[in-house]
Design a protein around this nucleic acid. Sequence first.
RNA 1: GGACAGAUGGGUGAGCGGUUGAAACCGCACGCCUGGAACGCGUGUGUAGGGAAACUUACCGAGGGUUCGAAUCCCUCUCUGUCCGCCA
Length: 414
Amino acid sequence: MLDPKLLNKSFDETVANLQKKKVSADLLAQLKDLYLVNKGFKLDLETAQAYQNDKSKLFQKLAKNSEELNNLKLDLANNKNKIAELTEKVRDSEINLEKLLHTIPNITSNDVPFGNDENDNVLLENILEPRIFHFEPKAHYELGENNNWLDFERGAKLAKSRFTVIKGLGARLERALINFMLDHNREYGFDEVSVPIITNSKSLFGTGQLPKFEEDLFKIEGEDLYLIPTSEVTLTNIFNDEIINIDQLPIKMTAVTPCFRKEAGSGGRDIRGIIRQHQFYKVELVAITKQEDSDDILEKMIECSSSMLTKLGLPHRKMLLCGGDMGFSARKTVDIEVWLPSQNKYREISSVSNTGDFQARRANIRYRDGKNNKLAHTLNGSSLAVGRTLVAIMENYQQADGSIEIPEILKKYL
RNA sequence: GGACAGAUGGGUGAGCGGUUGAAACCGCACGCCUGGAACGCGUGUGUAGGGAAACUUACCGAGGGUUCGAAUCCCUCUCUGUCCGCCA
């Protein structure tokens, strides 16, 4: 959540910054007005409350049925009505303020470039050269069916389209990848955590999925519960409404969970194969840090994910996202894209973001720094989407005869 | 799912409808004591908002209600514990 004080104290700067994320200046001006109106009502309310509190103390001193007491009663009855009115006004103005505030994305870090979409992202680094094929490389869905790893029809039969049954060596490879990734992350200092994959609206609000992106989530009927779209939600919210002791920071966690996404609005994109599914495993990294440490830890998380691809021998590149391509909660995001020979291009396989205090303000995650409680910084990153890694291995390690070689490092996990 | 019990500050735990934002103890911080420490003694120590400050408002699981005044009374909900049921 945006700090509403920013609108009051440095309005122009904030407007300029949020232009990167396509937030209009009008909207922010409106937000500032709402903030000031609400503040005014609050002040009036507090004054009336102070009056009521103060005068109520006199009741113990005044004689029963005295004229003074009766007058006071009348006076306070009036004041009470006034309080009720003002309470209403404060509440209404607050609802209006929050409704708008909750839909404003995070401000971006200064080094985030302007831009509209993925074409304006900035290449940071290429790692490993794509292999040269002496035959026409097949798409993973073709390889998957030929090798009897991927069964799309049965997946659709069991649930619907965008669900897939993974079988045989494909299934074992998926599990091997998960184990390999978790071990790798532990070497980078991330403690393994096992979290619920169902979560409530409060947690989803905390990390920014709600209220704006409800249509992307699978909701449990009749309950305030949703399937998680990423374990970022449950990992980060482990600490919601808590004050963390500073010597526990940074907290670095990793988890594997299935993730569930409705993919509303993704239209016909990636309809073939397992690139875009309603359910997929993802190994996640989450860090909770001191304010001054988050930039460094972002770099380490990017390195953690990138080196994992290097170990797997998969060519990839790091892209600094432009404002227009960034997510709602992010202050700075670096995507890692893996080479897919069949598409002859790089596709997102990991996204690592520093959200600054945006999620911490929503989820109320703080740490004690001496006498002060400060909002923590939270970061998250896919330490690779498992399904997409499987895709990348299939395509990059395919042989002329249609078989798939197993990356050396995974052999001990099979 | 059924029955009962409970929810108070960093922790344990008192709280009568009005000097209780909250006793006491523990913890923590600082000071004194000491060569240094322990012990002991003293002082301080919740969160959030507003304000330059003085100060002020809200918060005792959450939300409502009664009252001039609610941690305290009433209602609803949530969670936790115990017992029963059901189970991986």
